[in-house]
Design a protein around this nucleic acid. Sequence first.
RNA 1: GCGCCCGUAGCUCAGUUGGAUAGAGCGCCUGGCUACGAACCAGGAGGUCGGGAGUUCGAAUCUCUCCGGGCGCGCCA
Length: 585
Amino acid sequence: MKPEIERLLNAALARLTGPVLAEAPAPASVVIERTRDPQHGEFATNIALRLAKAARKNPRELAAAIVAALPASELIARTEVAGAGFINFHLAPGAYAAELARIHAQGEAYGHSTRGGGERVLVEFVSANPTGPLHVGHGRQAAFGATLANLLRATGHDVAREYYINDAGRQMDILAVSVWVRYLEAGGEVLAFPENGYRAAYVLPLAQALRERVGARLQHGASAVLAGLPADAPAGDKEAYIDALIERCRALIGAAGFREVLDLSLALMLADIRGDLAEFGVVFEQWTSEREFAESGAIDHALEVLRRQGRLLEKDGATWFRATEFGDEKDRVVVRENGVKTYFASDIAYHLSKYERGFTRLLDVLGADHHGYVARVRAGLIAMGCPADCLEATLIQFVSLFRGTEKIPMGKREGQFVTLRQLREEVGNDACRFFYLIRSHDQPLDFDLELAKSRTNENPVYYIQYAHARVASVMKQLSARGLSFDRAQGLAHAGALASPHEQAVFSALTRYPEILEQAAIGRAPHVLAHYLRELANTLHTYYNAEVFIVEDAAVRNARLALVLGVQQVLRNGLALLGVSAPESM
RNA sequence: GCGCCCGUAGCUCAGUUGGAUAGAGCGCCUGGCUACGAACCAGGAGGUCGGGAGUUCGAAUCUCUCCGGGCGCGCCA
C-alpha cells in the first residue's frame, strides 16, 4: 500500500517541480507514515512542511497544491490538508480487502520486497574465539545476526552469513597448553594449574579426548615440565609464566605434538560451537579460519595494496599503517619489530577479502567491547580503495543473566559462566530467541531465566504464539461444526468488514511490509518483535469482541479470511525471528 | 584524560533521518468464562522524557554544557 502512495506523491511532486518547486525533493525526504488517529485517515505525509521553507510557501498552501496535483488512484478515497500542513490519505473501502487478497495469494512470501536491489551483503557475526563454548552474550549476537540476515534477504538483498574463526593467536596456544596440563593430571601428575590457563570444566573432556587419541605418548613428569620456569601469579607474572609453559610444552612434545594438541582442541571446540548454533537455528554460508587465511598469503596481499598506495611507513623497526590519514586517532602497527604481523593486519586483510569477493556492504555484528576497532578497520578499507561506507558495524550490548532478582556471575577464564547451550536447554529456543530480540541491540539486556521459563502471563513469548494457535483452534472448531472455509467468498466480502476492531486488525496487518523494511534498514530486529506483539494484540482483542463462526456464511468467511491473514503474517514474522509458530500449545 | 553507547511511568523497555494529545508489557485497582482456547480481553491510576541552555512554525528526537551509568582507548588476541 505504501509504495503506491509513494508513487502518487512522487508523481505530484514531479508535476510541481518547475512551476512551484525550484528543484525535485530528494527521494529520502519523502516520508509517509501511518497515522495514529483514524480521524487522520490511514497514511499521512509531512512533505509540505519539509519543503515549505525552500519553496518560500505557506505549508498549508503548498500541501493544497500537492493534493491538487495527485493522480487519481483506486487505493485512495480522499486526501485532505490538516494541521500545520500535513496531507492525510483516506483509503478507499476496498483497499484493505485487496491487500488481504495479496496476503492469501503470496503466503509465506508476503511482505517481501526487492528494495535492496540484490545488493551483495556479507553479515559477519558471532566469530567467537574457539577457546571455549559460546556463552549467553554470543547467543544474543547469534540471534541478532541471524535475524538481520533474514530481514535483509526478505527485503531484496543478496545475503551471505559468515563466521570468522580466530584460531591463529596466542589464546589458542593457551587453550592447547591448558588441555595438555589437564592431560598430564589425568595421567597421574600433580602440578598447579596455570593462573592464566583455561580452568573451566569444558577443558577436561578435551584432555580426555586427547588421551584417547594419543595414549601416553605426550605424557611427561611434572618435574620436567616445571623445571626452571618463572613463578606463576600471585608471586610472579602469570603472562610470563604461561608463555614459558607453552615453550616448555613445545620443547617436550615437539612442534608436531603441540600442533596435534591444538588441532584436536580446536576441532572439538568448533564442533561444539557449530552444533550449538545449528540447534539454535543459526547457520552460516561460510566459516573462515584465520589461520588458513593467513597461510594463504592474503595478509601479505593486503599489506602490498597498502604499500602501493603509499600508506605504510617504517618506524622503530616496525611497519606502520598511516591510519590517521583516514580518520583513525593514531597510526597502527601492522608488522611488529619481531617481524610478526599484528592482529590488526590480519583483520583489515580479512575485510579486504570480503570486498574483493564481491560484497559491497560489509556488516559486522560485534560485542560492544569491540567498538574501539571499527574506526581502524574502516580506515584500512578506505586506504585500500574501498568506499568509505562499505563497512558498517552494529554493536551488541552485553547480557546479564538473572534468576529472578539474583544476578548470575560471569567470568570466562574462571569457568564460572552459563553457556548458550545451557540457556537453551533450560528455557527453550523460542523463548531464547525472543528475549534476545525484543530489546534494541544498543540496550544492555537483563535476561531473567525464571521469566523466560514461566508459562504465565508475565512471559511475553507465548502471547504471539498463542494468537497464532488461536486461529488454528478456530479453524479446528469450524470443521468440528461441519463447516468449511470458502476463501473466495471470504475475500470477496472482506471489504464489508468495517467494525473498529476489524479496521484495527486490517491496519496492523497491512503494516507488515513497512515493518520489514524499517527493521532491515534500521538493522533493528526488535522492531519486528514489537510489531508482532501489537498484531497479536489486535487479534486477541478482535477475538474477544466478536464471534467469527457465525451463521451468515459471507460474514463468517470474510472474518476467517481476515484472521487467517493475521495467522499468515504472524507465521512469517516469527519465522524471521527464528521462533516457531505452533498450531496448538 | 579522550572516544563510543545509554538515561522516557513503581519495574523492564518502545518511540530518536524534528511533526498532530509521549506509548507497551509487568506490577497495582475494577470488571469479563453455561463463550470459536481466560497463556485472553475491557476500564482505571501512574510522566518536570536525567538537569539546564540553545536552534525553529514545532524538540523525547538536533547542538552545547553539566550530572549519572556501561564500554573502549597495546608492536595483546
